[in-house]
Design a protein around this nucleic acid. Structure first.
Ligand code: ZN
Ligand code: ZN
Ligand code: ZN
Ligand code: ZN
Lengths: 164, 164
DNA sequence: AAATAGATGAAATATTGTAACAAAATTGCC
DNA sequence: GGCAATTTTGTTACAATATTTCATCTATTT
């Protein structure tokens, strides 16, 4: 089971997460002959600033201005589309936000655990879960093409700290 | 495994779906001492007009005007919130739309199969899937509170008709 | 260098959702 | 029934998210 939940929810050297993500991004773009332009790279880096998903306008607000002008929404969305396409980020539809993918390129279901305490999201790729989803689809005669699984709750850290 | 995929994706007497849904809604409101007002009932009925999820503004457009005036967004969203609260409908976050729940009141995971061909959505409550999701959460130390599973692909009918 | 395709800038607009407060309807109580 | 409390709805304005369109600029290819 691939998972970044340990990293996402605990104190860790996050710079390593960032470095790894950016380096994977460069690799992947090279493979696909796609261009990781400055805007795209900046957006990806921003998304990886933490394990909390970011909305498009939050990204726009945090991006450093170019020539004194804020980068506008369409540019942000174009960068997001590009990164989604390459599988470098994922969208969390329930909150209109975007999160870096810790293992792009690997076959993996898109399963996220989103903590309502700290806001962090961890991606988990569980084969067993995948398998059940495939079985369930098949038994219903449904040709599965993609999926989106968002689990909401409290991560270990927030569970200890904040008694509900 | 509870599922309405047979009904949702095949020709069937849909009036029975509607009648059953409305009758369940009245029951459930009675239990909870909640009021199924005309607007709320109309919104629910509209959502049940088909097995295709509807957006809030689509509902607003289709609702018959009251005193010659269109029902405004806030009223629609209030009705939606009410129906969500009672478990009579679900939200599909990936497309900002709402779909009737075929078995409200029963314990059930929220799992949907959404056909990109015909747009219909079927709800499935699979214990095995539930169980795996619970296990996966627990193994990660994640306190699961709610979930949202959207499977996208082609239903049986669309698979036969439309060769991809 | 010219042509082409890809990427960004800029302005406007569309879509989805909420806040705030007034008006109306319903409920519970006397 | 009359009256206060509560709930629901109307109305207006606005916030947040996302897209369309067309012009301009940049990179790649020929
Ligand atoms: Zn990290
Ligand atoms: Zn947390
Ligand atoms: Zn039906
Ligand atoms: Zn279909």
């Amino acid at each position: 089971m691939l998972s970044n939940s340990r990293a996402a929810y605990r104190a860790h050297n996050h710079q390593r997460c960032i470095d790894a993500a950016m380096s994977r991004a460069h690799e992947r773009c090279a493979e696909r002959r796609a261009r990781l332009t400055p805007i795209r790279e900046a957006v990806l880096a921003l998304i990886w600033q933490s394990h909390r998903p970011l909305g498009a306008y939050a990204i726009a607000d945090k991006l450093p201005p170019v020539n004194g002008k804020k980068v506008q929404a369409p540019s942000i969305y174009r960068a997001i589309d590009f990164l989604l396409e390459l599988g470098l980020i994922h969208r969390l539809p329930s909150q209109n936000s975007y999160i870096g993918c810790p293992f792009p390129g690997n076959e993996h279901s898109d399963v996220f655990m989103v903590c309502r305490g700290c806001g962090s999201a961890a991606e988990v790729s569980a084969d067993a879960l995948n398998q059940i989803i495939a079985d369930t689809s098949q038994r219903s005669g449904f040709l599965l093409e993609s999926q989106c699984v968002e689990l909401t709750g409290l991560c270990l850290a927030c569970r200890d700290g904040e008694l509900p």
